[in-house]
Amino acid sequence: MALLELRNVSKIYRLGGEEIRALDDVSLDIDEGQFISIIGPSGSGKSTLMHILGCLDTPSTGTIRLDGMMIQDASSRQLAQIRNRKIGFVFQFFNLLPKLNVLQNVELPMIYSGIPARQRREQAMAALRMVEMENRAKHRPSQLSGGQQQRTAIARALVNDPKIVFADEPTGNLDSHTGELILQMFSRLSREGRTIILVTHDPEIAAVTPRRIEIRDGRVAHQLDPTLAGLNRFPTAVS
């Protein structure tokens, strides 16, 4: 059974009288341990897909199963708890809390899962070691470079040992060298067995991941899936 199963998922926004199909009948399986990029031009529906995969949002129609649990009809409270335990996010603009230091930022998800302070500290330090940020623990985000901020954000995404890590344009706000280092970090995490989904508009970045899902106009336009090599080299969905 796949870790994440999307079946005929659509997301429809209504603006005035107009209907926008941000996602249109998308079906996907994502297995544990995969390193995937979701690519496509701006406005194609990548972020919408990530929000639904990442339990920030629910689909208008269709079903989604995460780790054996159907969640298309989950309440916002249940979604929050699922995000807390099973999902980590890394954003383009880092999204660290400016008033908290690095350690406190990394501890944040554990505060919401009610982990006692000492264990929080230990786990947060462990996560910071994974991204080599342990000697910046007391710094404020404003005292860090972009790359350091993004590494802090990655540590925060990993700290609750999630099933999947989502990264929405994680290098979009970094210079190319730093971006490269961040991508290497994701590759390393992937080799260590993490399930990681990169959202990007940049084919060069997407080239880092073995599996690529291309979105156009809310549909899966093309998939490259090395696990199905030879069988599935051709577009699975044609509009």
């Binding site: 929050a80 708890q81 995000r83 660290l96 809390l97 400016p98 998800p109 919401y112 609750n160």
Partner: peptide, 16 residues
């Protein structure tokens, strides 16, 4: 607002 969004993304419930 943005900070609240971050908290929610990492698992804060509305009640929290």
């Amino acid at each position: 607002i943005r900070e609240i969004g971050i908290c929610k993304a990492v698992g804060a419930t509305g009640t929290g």
